[in-house]
Computed example of a mutant assay.
Amino acid sequence: MQVKRNETKAIAVGNMWIGGEHPVSIQSMTNTRTEDVEATVGQILALEEAGCQIVRVAVPTPEAARAIGAIKRRIHIPLVADIHFDHTLAILSVEQGADKIRINPGNLGGTDRLQAVVEACRGRGIPIRVGVNSGSLERELLARHGGPTPEALVESAWMKVRQIEDMGYDRMVVSIKSSDVMLSIRSYRLAAERMDYPLHLGITEAGTLSSGTVKSAVGLGVLLAEGVGNTIRVSLTGDPVEEVHVARQILQALDLAPRGVEIISCPTCGRTRIDLVSIAEEVERRTAHLKKTMKVAVMGCVVNGPGEAREADLGIAGGDGMGILFKKGKLLRKVKEEELVDALMEEILKEQDRVDR
């Protein structure tokens, strides 16, 4: 059953919409030097291929801001400029064609500087992402609330939102980040009750691929299952393409995105006589870009494989140097182990072609 999303405004970011009735979108951030246009464009194109819908780049220097125009001309998804401390970099990024500006209004150095950024964004209709982080809360809020509590985080975000509203602008997306999963969950819940701006979900500094995936899946999964959140970024230490893969799987598990090819595979046991781990990883990699919803099984033995995975559209099960290819639990043919993946991919692509025609 589809979860009802929390009601928010809808905000356009380039050719994408965040909030309202629009689907939850996937974001990521490059880890290249933004000044290196070739490297940054190459990474963004890889992110696009993985399913990223909005991408953010760090803008710590004027050279990085000036690179935005060249980068935008060669990519196909909205580009967000991430700004800290120097408001002139935000204005330069707007002039270069950034589709959204990410700022923490509290670290720009004063109301006049924030006003200048707001005016620049208003002039081009560019939304502002108001970011609040548990590690950079105002001292008075920390003192009043006794630390970085959900109430302190949401109050900080609300103060900044009201400040920009008082400047006559309301095209905003709000993020409230913490590396603490439960603090993030409680904070976003409270924010969803108190404001109607789209929420950008994330567990900041979540960690490596393994630990970061778990923390993000738990934190984002709980909120999304409750209808809270309009766009997500999974923060992982490593290749940002992995962030997109994890984000897609979180949304697919909650029926918030088309599933594409879903791989089911057994955990292996003493009956396994093939390199199931490598085979499952290869199948997952080779099917990641496919759009048709399909369940594909990669099983470790022919004894239980087809039976346990009879609901799979297609599957393979290994033997000792041999394996079988099956469809809906019924045997198609026997295949040599080294040909199993290719044989499976051939059948998968047949199914994909059938839909495309």
Rank of each mutant, 00 (worst) to 15 (best):
V118S: 07
A98W: 10
T149R: 08
S134A: 15
D112L: 13
G125W: 05
L141N: 07
L141I: 05
E95Y: 08
P127M: 06
I128C: 11
E140H: 13
G147K: 02
I101Q: 07
A157F: 02
R144N: 04
R124H: 11
G131A: 15
R144D: 05
I126N: 08
A157V: 07
T111W: 00
V94F: 13
T111G: 01
V94I: 15
V94G: 03
C121R: 02
V118W: 13
S93Y: 13
E119H: 07
Q115H: 08
R113L: 12
G147T: 05
S156F: 08
P150L: 07
G131R: 04
R122N: 02
T88I: 04
P148I: 04
I126H: 03
I128S: 12
A120H: 10
Q115I: 00
G110D: 04
I103C: 12
S93H: 11
E140V: 04
S136I: 05
E151K: 10
Q115A: 14
L141E: 06
M159S: 05
V94L: 12
W158D: 09
D99K: 04
R102D: 10
A98P: 11
A116E: 15
S136K: 12
G146Q: 06
A120R: 10
Q115F: 03
A157Y: 03
G109Y: 04
Q96V: 00
P148F: 06
G97F: 06
V118R: 06
S134F: 05
R129D: 13
N104Y: 09
E151S: 09
S156A: 14
D112Q: 15
E151F: 06
L92C: 00
L108Q: 14
Q96E: 15
I103N: 12
I126G: 10
S156Q: 08
P127K: 11
E138I: 00
R124G: 03
L142G: 06
S136H: 09
P148K: 01
L92N: 00
S134R: 03
R113G: 03
C121E: 05
E151M: 03
